[in-house]
Design a protein around this nucleic acid. Structure first.
Lengths: 356, 356
DNA sequence: CAGCGTTGCACAATCGATTGCGCAGTTCAA
DNA sequence: TTGAACTGCGCAATCGATTGTGCAACGCTG
């Protein structure tokens, strides 16, 4: 009747040792001393647990302890390289700390987000890391979630919610990019945005506007695009290339958008960077291998992931810990997609071009 | 004492209705008729469940039913675009079917793989989708897992294990690529491989060898590389470019490898495709935007994911279902990274040609 | 009105681990 | 010899849902 191959449970091990499950449980959780279990019994249990490859039933444990040692990760698109990298780091860190990760893709859709948030609640995750879709949608559900367990926002803030959050300095990133372009003689600097209404996007747009205004440059008619896909980038860039404002440079607020811009430029027969300079957000393996290699505003993605998990663990440890916010610095990686208009109006060679 | 905000459980709802939890459970699971619950009681319960937003405790349910409605996904690198896309599709499909997904990254390391497989077992996933690291490692653990729940391999086979599996036709893909190159006058066709010992890689190498042999071409000294990273591709390509065999074309067995090859070629001052033609595996958004646009052997990644889940669900439904294997077709996407040596020995210019 | 069938639902065991409480058994001092 | 103090561990409740069994109460027939 007894399946010798069945993974031994705490219960069965106790029975085979002629002890109660209670005693075994206490020994395994290091409470032996506190409950005055004799050293002999303790060692007997420990030894047997070792040799039999005992695994305690995690479900039963979770039910009793009201903690599942799992966290939820809700992101808008797993296949987006940014979120893929983020997910990898979060999963690795979580595993190091004994947590498993349930991921769900909100598909950049508030309705789906609501659905997966409900799923997370249902699955009793101990904590949640979320890159929210909107700035205000689904907050009732999120509020309910956050009321019972720690939640950490990543990459995107929800201004109205008092949640821990970790983002990179999107606004400063845009300023860096604009400054870089202005220094090189650009004045008509367009912006190809991603998903309006999401924090990261709006911050970057705001940074772009602010930097332009401070330099006395106009932004009217220079904002294009809607969505983070290549197609959206291409469409935005087409409009940009035909716009009366005749931009000489563009900020692409996402790595896929940059690809779309390149595509559109190529189709229109414009050269990058000579006819259109480009600074894109988020470095990717391929960014440096493109022709031209892309000048990038780089976020420390792995750091974002690591910090998000750290913030979550902090609040998982002490439930009363205040929801902290951290902003991580970004940097500009200069490569070859920005043309220096000061030296040469628009001619000579591109690629290996470390400006004389 | 009673927290009005607490999510109503089956138990509390039963109490508030003056009924037993048993009755509520039966009504909610549609067993009302089978247990002769009166229509009045049934409707009363249903109505209350509706208005109170009842959520049954998933942990308790899982403990009792021995099913968690969750599946495990173990892949070697979430950030690899191929696996990211695969993960996205699997998660979406799983969600449609009421399953949540626990992902873990095996980091292309057998030891980590063993660790995360243990984690999956511990978390009582109902089924597992796995892209194994080696061809033989960790099989004891996997065997134990597979003994109690369905497992489906994806992208990579484990020849010795009798598991359901879904892969694309790697071997044929390599043959397609070689044929394409031979047709265009190439004879010294190198291969930059990924992680030797993994199924996909070895199949592709085998396909390359077979196609070369069939055409009467040698492969000796034409195999380079080890690992799926850009750096590995660059290192492999450097060796390739300096090799006495003087290849005119290369197969890159992974998308990141192709980037490495491009980088190495650029560093060495070789033009792609004039000096070195390139066919790479796995299409990616950026592949068509590169200079030159990459000619690609494309796997239907989303289909792989969908099929993997379908295979798993099939075996989740009927535990006695035989472990089936499916192979999905690949196709060649012709773009601009292959030079036709028949027409022009090696001169003239193709696309916008940066090198002076 | 006894006896039987039917209806409608509750009891209690179960899934495994956790934990407060307390019971036997031993030791030692008074 | 008795009670206190201590040692070593088990009992049983608990987490919440599921499910086989069974008990009342009702209606009906003879």
């Amino acid at each position: 009747m007894l399946d010798v191959n069945a993974p031994p449970s705490l219960k069965s091990l106790a029975a085979s040792l002629g002890l109660s499950a209670a005693t075994v449980s206490r020994v395994l959780s290091g409470q032996a001393a506190r409950y005055r279990i004799s050293a002999a019994t303790r060692d007997r249990i420990l030894a047997r647990a070792e040799t039999s490859g005992l695994v305690v039933n995690h479900l039963a444990r979770s039910l009793r302890l009201q903690r599942t040692l799992s966290i939820g990760l809700v992101i808008p698109d797993i296949a987006n390289p940014f979120f893929a990298l983020l997910a990898r780091e979060i999963e690795r860190q979580a595993r190091r700390h004994g947590y498993s990760v349930i991921v769900a893709d909100s598909e950049e859709d508030p309705a789906v987000e609501a659905e997966v948030l409900a799923l997370m609640q249902n699955r009793h995750v101990d904590g949640l890391i979320l890159a929210p879709v909107g700035t205000s949608a689904a907050t009732t559900l999120l509020r309910a979630l956050a009321a019972t367990r720690p939640c950490v926002l990543v990459d995107r803030l929800l201004p109205q919610a008092k949640l821990a959050a970790i983002t990179s300095d999107h606004r400063h990133g845009a300023r860096l990019a604009v400054a870089h372009l202005i220094e090189r003689g650009h004045a008509r600097i367009a912006c190809v945005q991603g998903h309006p209404g999401t924090f990261a996007n709006d911050e970057r747009v705001a940074g772009w506007r602010a930097a332009m205004r401070r330099a006395g440059l106009a932004t009217a008619g220079l904002l294009f695009g809607a969505g983070y896909s290549i197609a959206a980038g291409r469409d935005g860039a087409r409009a940009l290339l035909e716009s009366p404002a005749q931009p000489t440079a563009a900020l692409a607020l996402g790595n896929l958008l940059a690809l779309g811009v390149l595509q559109a430029a190529r189709e229109a027969g414009r050269r990058v960077p000579e006819d259109l300079s480009l600074v894109a957000f988020d470095d990717q393996p391929w960014a440096g291998v493109m022709t031209p290699p892309l000048t990038i505003i780089d976020q420390p993605i792995a750091d974002l992931g690591r910090e998000a998990l750290a913030l979550l663990l902090e609040r998982l440890g002490r439930r009363d810990a205040p929801p902290r916010r951290r902003t991580l610095p970004v940097r500009l990686i200069e490569r070859g997609s920005v043309h220096d208009r000061r030296a040469r109006p628009a001619a000579s060679s591109p690629t290996p071009d470390p400006t004389p």
